[in-house]
Amino acid sequence: MSYIVLKGVNYSYSLGEGRSLKALKNLSFSVEKGSFVALVGMNGSGKSTLSKLLNGLFLPTNKSGQVIVDGINTKEVDAGNLKDGDGKEITAFDVRKKVGIVFQNPDNQTVATIVEDDVAFGPENIGLPREEIVDRVYSALESVGMMEYAERPVSKLSGGQKQRVAIAGVLAMRPDVIVFDESTAMLDPLGRREIMSIAKDLNDQGITVIMVTHNMDEAALADRIIVLEKGQIVLDGTPKEVFSHDVTVYGLTLPPATETANRLVEKGFAFDTTITNEDELVEGVCKQLR
């Protein structure tokens, strides 16, 4: 079942004096519930802009463009003419509760000084009762392994730990979808791996993950890769499908394993070039040696 559907979405930044910059052009795609999607593309290809459209921070700037999240059209929410079953108005908050975003710089997304206060920020905003907030804060900290840091100041944590706190802050909203907008970009390899494994765990628990990244090893872990170029989708498919194309024309690199396989083929070995990770590479090399 499609959870997020985009139909003919344009997005332009206005640059003043009547000029504007088209960041997204006629985007249409949908994201299945429970899937793990990687969003890749060069700097400036529109990934962050797209992320912000997914939870209604931005709205399509063309008339016909639509972003529909779990049946809710983000534009109509903004106009205030949607009602739920009980006649209560559906607000932008209802969309943001469903789709959370973890941003790139951990320092710029923590609101409070103390870890648990920061994680509580979202649940406090949506007016949950106190017991429920406490419950959510601690289970969110538990799932990112930051329980013992609950009462520490965020500023004294490492980059990876700060980013885990940011994930907990989003998790405490109990979202159905989490968008990671280059959330691993500022971390060391260990920190990256930790965040990736948290993302994988969350995905296993049924949360839809959209991972914006420049790291092809990370992208290769997804079920599906969407390649953006100049605000348009140029490739969309499983890692095997995407990496069978020459992605370097879109400013991307191949995952090291795929790259190695390609080079082996160049040297005359009969090698499967659709592999995307090290395990498959090792397997292939072993086959050759036997």
Binding site: I101, D107, N108, V111, E124, I133, V170
Partner: peptide
């Protein structure tokens, strides 16, 4: 930073209305 923080706060439903509750009373 302020720009990014504003997006992060908005994504987490920030509002300064009476609907807000507190974890620590």
């Amino acid at each position: 930073r302020a720009d990014e923080l504003a997006f992060a706060m908005d994504s987490r439903c920030y509002n300064a209305t009476d609907n807000r509750t507190k974890m620590k009373v």
